[in-house]
């Protein structure tokens, strides 16, 4: 009884897909953003799994960088959301229609 590395990857794929679906079906910009974070985490999980598969710490380093960048991204992203809210009085993504043709 043991866990093949593929299981972790499948889990990561599932989390990634769930995150992607969440981005698509949620209207709140904040929740969409959370789903993006979920997707980032699933990728991190993949990286860490591969680091283990290959017996190398490089994957973990990359995951570390992803975390750092995600932190920066969240900082800016949330600031943007706050601004958007100031502009629209809403965090509904569908209210932002300026890209409409």
């Amino acid at each position: 009884m043991s866990v093949p590395a593929g299981y972790y990857l499948i889990l990561a794929a599932a989390l990634f897909s769930i995150g992607a679906v969440g981005v698509l079906i949620r209207r709140s910009v904040i929740v969409m953003f959370m789903c993006v974070e979920l997707m980032l985490n699933s990728v991190n999980l993949t990286l860490v799994t591969f680091a283990r598969i290959n017996a190398s710490l490089d994957g973990q380093v990359l995951a570390f960088f992803v975390i750092v960048v995600a932190a920066a991204e969240v900082t800016v992203g949330l600031a943007l959301i706050v601004n958007l809210f100031r502009l629209r009085a809403s965090t509904d993504a569908d209210q932002v229609g300026a890209l409409r043709a």
Binding site: G6, A12, V21
Partner: peptide, 25 residues
């Protein structure tokens, strides 16, 4: 639908080769 498709594709692409007994770390 796309989420399911994505999951299948991703799983097949990444996890596929690592499901045998040898891939138990």
């Amino acid at each position: 639908v796309l989420g399911v498709l994505l999951f299948v594709s991703l799983a097949a692409a990444t996890a596929g080769p690592f499901l045998g007994d040898a891939s138990v770390c």
